[in-house]
């Protein structure tokens, strides 16, 4: 079947991404538990190793870079749990991905309502 035309700036989390990102997303899913979040904080390398992250995924986590994490198969619903460990909310994530400051990103959202 032909793949649907891509949407600029947008990744559909499909089967290929779900396979590629499985280890990373599984690690992020574990962060529903406060004890696991603390274990990650205590030993990030060890925690990532335990989940078998690929080198690309490990680097993306190290860089705290959302676009890299998505490129490595991360799904934003699970990545949000990782971001929470760093104290980042979805507007921080939006600002980082669009190359804006958080205030600029918030202003963009408000402007969308006009």
């Amino acid at each position: 079947m032909p793949r649907p035309a891509s949407i600029p700036g947008t990744t559909l989390f499909d089967g290929a991404a779900a396979m590629k990102g499985y280890a990373l997303n599984k690690m992020c899913y574990s962060f529903n538990s406060a004890a696991n979040r603390e274990a990650f904080r205590q030993d990030e390398d060890g925690y990532c190793a335990r989940y078998g992250l690929s080198p690309e995924q490990r680097e993306a986590v190290r860089h705290r870079n959302v676009l890299e994490l998505i490129g490595a198969g991360g799904n934003v619903y699970y990545l949000a749990k990782l971001a929470g460990i760093f104290g980042l909310d979805v507007q921080d994530l939006g600002a980082q991905q669009t190359g804006m400051t958080k205030d600029e990103f918030k202003a963009k959202l408000i402007a969308a309502g006009r």
Partner: peptide, 13 residues
């Protein structure tokens, strides 16, 4: 709304 990607922040009123 869109949380992920370079199009994050997309809204279509």
């Amino acid at each position: 709304h869109q949380l992920d990607g370079e199009r994050a922040g997309f809204i279509n009123k």
